[in-house]
Design a protein around this nucleic acid. Sequence first.
DNA 1: CGCGACCTCCTAAATACTTAGGACATCGAT
DNA 2: ATCGATGTCCTAAGTATTTAGGAGGTCGCG
Lengths: 135, 135
Amino acid sequence: MSRTTHQLTPLELEIMNILWEHGPGNVQAVAQRLPERDGEPLAYTTVQTMLNVLHRKGKVRRELVDRAYVYTPELKRLDAMGSAVRDLVDRMFGGSAESLVMGLVETDQLTPERLKALQEKLLAAKAARTKGGKK
Amino acid sequence: MSRTTHQLTPLELEIMNILWEHGPGNVQAVAQRLPERDGEPLAYTTVQTMLNVLHRKGKVRRELVDRAYVYTPELKRLDAMGSAVRDLVDRMFGGSAESLVMGLVETDQLTPERLKALQEKLLAAKAARTKGGKK
DNA sequence: CGCGACCTCCTAAATACTTAGGACATCGAT
DNA sequence: ATCGATGTCCTAAGTATTTAGGAGGTCGCG
């Protein structure tokens, strides 16, 4: 067993983001939504190559529709988030998620006030889920 | 101008972590603290190369002591944290720090309860700082 | 003095990531 | 039937990252 996590590379992630946000699409759809690189868009074949890579790695599924393949995310966004965050927490914050949140505050990316509001919302949501809820 | 941020690569970060935690050190000190790779430690010269790279990039300063260079972090840990987190937030959470915290909870890396405790601590600290404090 | 220990610098090579061109197939329209 | 648009596959090359060997310098010791 080697690296089970197989973190997404930057460009792979950009493409997955497009698929997660706009739903399944073909090469053209993805290419159109990718932001330009130094004023020039990425070549069609470049995007295609990346989608191929993603497919080979099992991160997307594909299906022939008309002439072109339509790519659909296989990897769940939440799973990608989970491992990306875990990765950062391990590398940079000694494995402590709390440290990451503190870091967010210390580097002025989040104020304690906003954190409080968010936390209350999350707690409320959890309470609701526990009491009434369908899981 | 190209990439101003110049994110640290994984191995660069590992080395910076050692320097941040244990203070300035020479190649040997760093090499000893790096965990093994597939059962074998990294070669002395490999560590040296990395320290060279870090030096060329201005992330560390170095100073000849006796025979060997002693490397000292130039980049502040907080700055590295800041840009690593900002990077993740941008790539994965659409620029929203709150989304990152939510992600932490959704992926079971942090409970709302622990978040609450943390948030209270942070608010208290801030209040103290604002009222009495130095800084 | 010559040797081993220790260290630096230079250089190269393996791997991973990004980028993209060219060959070829198919469909629809001229 | 040919042409252009569109799409795939294969392949290669550029760049970044990681890994490490070899040449050569200096110091202390027998």
